[in-house]
């Protein structure tokens, strides 16, 4: 799983660096277009992903103490926060598409839509993993001695969170 996570991080890392170089060459356009983004939605989504990551970390800590029910509850909290992220992001995409914005609008929006959608797909996969972990934890599938699967799934989710922690300031804030 760690090889997979590093491969994913490398792909995002490359995209972030290409974004930085594109921004360098078209700073005025990127600054102007950034003002059209919903920074509140971006910040809210950051809070939701961080909260989901916190819940998942608490779930792992709970299972390491053989507290299966508590662990499942924390995972449920993480799932709710992750669903919240998806809902906010869909509203954000909806507003952009209604305004006629697409990949061809300009270079900034090509990067914005590509990067955020690539990340969005990872959130969906992470959500599926969290649902699987929650179901298995509820049925007593993990114990303190046998929780490698949960730790691995949790690491994937934290990777999704880590990528957004970089994406939010780069795309929504720095100018």
């Amino acid at each position: 799983m760690w090889v997979f996570i590093l491969a994913e991080l490398s792909a995002f890392g490359l995209l972030f660096m290409v974004y930085g170089i594109a921004r360098m060459k078209h700073a005025a356009l990127f600054d102007e277009m950034q003002l059209t983004l919903d920074r509140n939605a971006g910040a809210l989504n950051t809070v939701l992903l961080i909260t989901a990551s916190w819940c998942v970390a608490r779930a792992v800590a709970a299972i390491q103490k053989n507290a299966g029910l508590t662990s499942a509850r924390w995972l449920a909290g993480g799932i709710l926060a992750a669903v919240g992220f998806v809902v906010v992001k869909l509203f954000e995409y909806g507003a952009k598409f209604e305004a006629g914005i697409n990949l061809d609008t300009n270079l900034f929006y090509m990067f914005y839509l590509s990067l955020t959608f690539f990340h969005f797909m990872h959130v969906i996969l992470g959500l599926v993993i969290l649902l699987f972990l929650w179901r298995k934890t509820r049925s007593g599938g993990y114990t303190a001695e046998n929780c490698l699967g949960m730790e691995t799934g949790a690491s994937y989710w934290h990777m999704v969170d880590l990528v957004w922690i970089v994406l939010f300031p780069l795309i929504y804030v720095m100018r």
């Binding site: 590093l6 890392g13 660096m17 170089i21 970089v166």
Partner: peptide, 26 residues
């Protein structure tokens, strides 16, 4: 897992430094 930690922290550092450098150059 020092190797993994180094790789992930290194990723974070490089991505942010490249963006800072690109910003300064721009």
């Amino acid at each position: 897992k020092r190797l993994w930690q180094g790789a992930v922290v290194g990723w974070l550092f490089v991505v942010l430094v490249v963006n800072m450098a690109a910003y300064w150059k721009g």
